[in-house]
Design a protein around this nucleic acid. Structure first.
Length: 580
RNA sequence: GCGCCCAUAGCUCAGCUGGAUAGAGCGUUGGCCUCCGGAGCCAAAGGUCAGAGGUUCGAAUCCUCUUGGGCGCGCCA
């Protein structure tokens, strides 16, 4: 509808150009907004206001000229000038109800569009280090990234989702040490477990697996393991323990412990996310990049273009030449590539796989990382704009009015699993996705629990269940609601029906806007308002207990409503239940 | 010190990319059919859009400054 209006008005503007009212070279984009208030009609445009200055006429006079130049359109019943020069358009009510048929025809495809034109997009999100379970902070990124993927797919993009597994580097070493020390405790050794190793209970479970499978095979005397490592700096102590693990376990043993820990943690994360209704097309291993020499190749690509130099025994990428605030190390003095180096390789890999657009969802604490990543793409002759980084602000967690720490090492965080089990996946996802991603978020656990019954998600789901219930009632009471396709929609026209159908027809715009701006929260807000329109209608009118022709029209309308509720909920990964 | 994000009702948040009288939920107060599910509906109260300038027909929205909060500024990941 919006588009039809734009075409009509574009025609009017073209006529004014021919008549010399507007300069032929004048750039004009007619934009329509839905009127916020009923007395302003259905749609409004400010085109006369924005063009008034350029053509030297008062806005209201220009508005009249545009209206006079408008081609005939049966769907428009009235056009009027309002305020300083807005043009308000009033549509014929019966033409608006046609969307009911369109929705029922399109089914689950209603609201989808072709904006993406099949362009390939890869969305990387969560990508939490596999050193412990996901906590509620990760939940926000998961809910956001997954909803965004659904949204972009609905907008005609070819979407692939990926989880980048940081299975290389020091954190993995700390994991090995943590597991090994707990294992040694299980063997009966006296160990002073370091405060800065991973404290969580899940480390015991992994250690128990090692012990169960290999008994005392990796056992060494506690005195030997812990010799000479007291009294130093805590991080240095950890380094010493890592070295000790390497020498005492040997390469094979070390890799084994690492593998057990990594497998257990990634499997845990994966099942956790699946129960959160989030699944990834691929889990991409950082380690594989290093072992397959992709990291070397990426550094080579930078070097080939002359952007790598040596200093202090390390290799540096001259990212400052591309807008970064300083240069960055890619190969350490000890010969090991940095995390940044593998990340460059990872992004190069994504580009080489043919993705037009790379979307990274990062926690806000990584924002300083963006300039160097973009710099790397440019240095390898790629357009940096192909990388879109979306920052998700932190969720500050409160319990009983006090801020809760979310440190993985301390093991004191609230896990996503706990949240899910307490409030449920649907409520949690809706709660997360309601906030736009760049908004700071206060997540009060007590509140989330106590209000879970008040969560708007139930309001929306209830609307869906209620409609399903109407259909069940009809079947039970043998009320005829067949041939909805043949319903005479012109029988509709109550104020509540007009409000409802208006909201229904808005859905495609909401999807397009939400996808274009990467804002899933718009869908959540839309759904609330759609559910509100339905509940209001439900309370004011009877569907089944009216004469058959009107019944058929009304049931067709609520069937379309059910469809849009289901489509919208699907976009944010929330179930649309038949009953609650 | 430098950089990024944020500040809207008592609380948690929207505000359609600069539009008309700033909106929801929760909380508070008062109402609703013996009828398709009351996890619902209707109504009321609640605002100097952090503050000050600027841009223009028009600013919560754009620019500058100030205040207040979050987060960064590693050969960690």
């Amino acid at each position: 509808m919006k588009q039809q209006l734009q075409e009509l008005f574009a025609a009017a503007v073209a006529k004014l150009k021919r008549d010399g009212v507007l300069a032929p070279e004048q750039q004009v984009s007619v934009r329509f907004e839905r009127a916020r208030q009923k007395q302003h009609g259905d749609f409004a445009t400010n085109v006369a206001l924005s063009l008034a200055k350029a053509c030297g006429r008062p806005p209201r006079e220009l508005a009249q000229l545009i209206i006079d130049a408008l081609p005939a359109a049966p769907k428009i019943v009235k056009v009027e000038i309002a305020g300083p020069g807005f043009i308000n358009v009033f549509l014929a009510a019966d033409s608006q109800f046609q969307v009911v048929g369109a929705i029922r025809d399109a089914g689950s495809g209603y609201g989808h569009n072709a904006m993406g034109a099949g362009r390939k997009v890869i969305i990387e999100f969560v990508s939490a280090n596999p050193t412990g379970p996901l906590h509620v902070g990760h939940g926000r990124g998961a809910a956001f990234g997954d909803s965004l993927a659904r949204l972009l797919a609905a907008a005609g993009f070819e979407v692939v989702t990926e989880y980048y597994v940081n299975d290389a580097g020091r954190q993995m070493d700390i994991l090995v040490v943590s597991v090994w020390l707990r294992y040694l405790e299980l063997c009966g050794e006296q160990i002073a477990f370091p405060d800065n190793a991973y404290q969580g209970d899940y480390i015991f479970d992994i250690a128990a697996t090692v012990h169960r499978e290999h008994g005392d095979q990796y056992r060494h005397p506690g005195s030997e393991v812990c010799a000479d490592i007291t009294g130093q700096d805590l991080e240095l102590q950890l380094d010493s323990l890592i070295q000790r693990a390497e020498t005492l376990l040997g390469q094979e043993g070390y890799r084994y412990v690492l593998g057990v820990g990594l497998d257990a943690l990634t499997a845990d994360i994966r099942s956790d996310l699946e129960q959160f209704n989030v699944s990834f097309d691929r889990w991409f291993s950082e380690r594989s990049l290093i072992e397959d020499h992709h990291v070397d190749n990426a550094i080579g690509a930078l070097a080939k273009n002359g952007h790598v130099f040596e200093r202090d025994g390390a290799s540096w990428f001259r990212s400052s030449a591309f807008g970064d605030e300083k240069d960055r190390v890619v190969v350490r003095e000890n010969g090991a590539p940095t995390y940044f180096a593998s990340d460059i390789a990872y992004h190069l890999d994504k580009l080489e796989r043919g993705f037009d657009c790379l979307i990274d969802v990062w926690g806000a604490d990584h924002h300083g990382y963006m300039p160097r990543m973009k710099a790397a793409l440019e240095a390898m002759d790629y357009d940096a704009d192909r990388l879109v980084v979306l920052l998700v602000q932190f969720a500050s967690l409160y319990r009983g009015g006090e801020k809760v720490s979310m440190s993985t090492r301390a093991g004191e965080f609230v896990t996503l699993r706990e949240l899910r089990q307490e409030v449920g996946t649907d409520a949690a996802r809706f709660f997360y996705v309601q906030r736009k991603s760049e908004q700071h978020m206060d997540f009060d656990l007590d509140l989330a629990k106590s209000e879970s019954a008040e969560n708007p998600v139930y309001y929306v789901q209830y609307a869906h269940a209620r409609i399903c219930s109407v259909f069940r009632q009809a079947a039970e009471k043998h009320i005829d609601i067949s041939d909805l396709d043949g319903a005479d929609l012109s029988l509709l026209g109550e104020a509540h029906e007009i409000a409802l159908v208006n909201t229904l027809s808005r859905f495609p715009e909401v999807v397009e806007n939400a996808a274009a701006n990467h804002e899933p929260h718009q869908v959540a807000y839309y759904l609330r308002s759609l559910a509100n329109d339905f509940h209001t209608y439900y309370n004011a009118h009877n569907f089944l207990g009216v004469e058959p022709r009107l019944r058929r029209a009304r049931v067709a309308l609520i069937d379309a409503t059910r469809q849009v509720l289901a489509n919208g909920l699907a976009l944010i990964g929330v179930h649309a239940p038949d009953k609650m």
